[in-house]
């Protein structure tokens, strides 16, 4: 009985955290939008996401001409599943994580690369112009930001001498990676925004392309997709908190509380950026990525290496 309960507890915990995370993202997003628009933050900020979700449940899903129906249905599920797989490797305290695999960083890298596949598939399978154009431009950006992540995460693994996330958290005792490797967190934030196709890096679902990959998606499939994007942002924030902000470490409060708090701080910053910064131009972003950000990521790795010596 206990063994069986343990088997179910891990996925339920992960799903629960992601669902809560998606709700928090929606609330934060509404609150920042209300503040920036000058409307003032009201109580509707809390109920709004639930109301919008209810509307999507009631709404009929769209049909297009000759879509790749299987991929269209699977892309949001794959994307949500990746967010969950990523969250599973996060350590919540010194003794607990859902899956503290030895090569946690490698597993996370897989999540990032497959997220690109899921997003492209979502745009491609509707068989409509705007969503395919959005998928194209997302892919150009995605292939450019992906390398940043590998460099900054490997840099974080060097002081821990391990790819395991629990060891990376322990290695930050006394000095967080955000101080030791100051380039890491900002570069990882770029990857987070890109992989969640959010704010200034919302190239896949941009309003200029009529909603991009979601241009022809309505009803429950759209609810799943929106939820998955918010969940992905949550997973990335938890990862940033773990790798750069010392994870569960902190005084007085228990470990999980610190993880949640630090995740919320990163989440708030990422969500706010969406309302304060305009969407990047794909061509320029790709150029900046290869010519500026990638060398900076390499520098981050060099700094970590030299320090380790």
């Amino acid at each position: 009985m206990t063994a069986q309960a343990e088997v179910w507890a891990a996925p339920l915990l992960t799903a629960g955290v992601l669902a809560a995370g998606a709700y928090v993202v929606a609330v934060l997003d509404a609150a920042v939008a209300a503040a920036v628009s000058g409307a003032g933050i009201g109580r509707s900020v809390l109920a709004g996401p639930l109301r919008r979700a209810a509307l999507l449940v009631v709404q009929q899903p769209s049909a297009t001409e000759r879509p790749d129906a299987a991929s269209w249905a699977l892309a949001p599920a794959l994307y949500a599943g990746l967010a969950a797989a990523g969250l599973a490797v996060i350590p919540w305290s010194a003794s607990f994580s859902v899956a503290d695999v030895e090569a946690g960083i490698v597993l996370w890298g897989t999540v990032e690369s497959l997220a690109i596949v899921a997003i492209f598939l979502h745009g491609w399978s509707a068989n409509t112009h705007q969503s395919l154009l959005a998928a194209y431009r997302f892919l150009a950006a995605g292939l450019s930001y992906l390398l940043l992540s590998m460099f900054v995460l490997i840099a974080a693994a060097i002081p821990a001498e391990s790819l395991q996330l629990s060891r990376i958290v322990e290695s930050q005792h006394g000095l967080w990676n955000v101080v030791r490797q100051p380039l890491g967190l900002p570069l990882f934030a770029v990857v987070a925004l890109g992989s969640s196709t959010w704010g200034p890096l919302n190239l896949a679902d941009g309003d200029d392309l009529s909603g991009g990959t979601t241009a022809d998606v309505s009803g429950r499939p759209r609810l799943v997709w929106s939820g998955a994007r918010a969940a992905m942002l949550t997973s990335f924030s938890a990862m940033a908190a773990t790798v750069f902000l010392g994870g569960w470490q902190g005084p007085v409060l228990p470990g999980p509380a610190w993880v949640v708090l630090k995740t919320l701080v990163v989440l708030a910053a990422l969500v706010a950026s969406g309302h304060l910064f305009a969407r990047v131009r794909t061509e320029r972003f790709v150029t900046v990525c290869w010519l500026v950000l990638l060398p900076l990521a390499f520098l981050d790795l060099v700094i970590a290496g030299v320090e380790a010596l």
């Binding site: 920042v32 920036v36 628009s37 000058g38 409307a39 704010g199 200034p200 309003d207 309302h275 305009a278």
Partner: peptide, 15 residues
């Protein structure tokens, strides 16, 4: 502004 993904600022401009 809406085109650029700045929906909240677009609301401000509309007001």
């Amino acid at each position: 502004l809406r085109l650029a993904g700045l929906g909240a600022l677009a609301v401000r401009a509309a007001r």
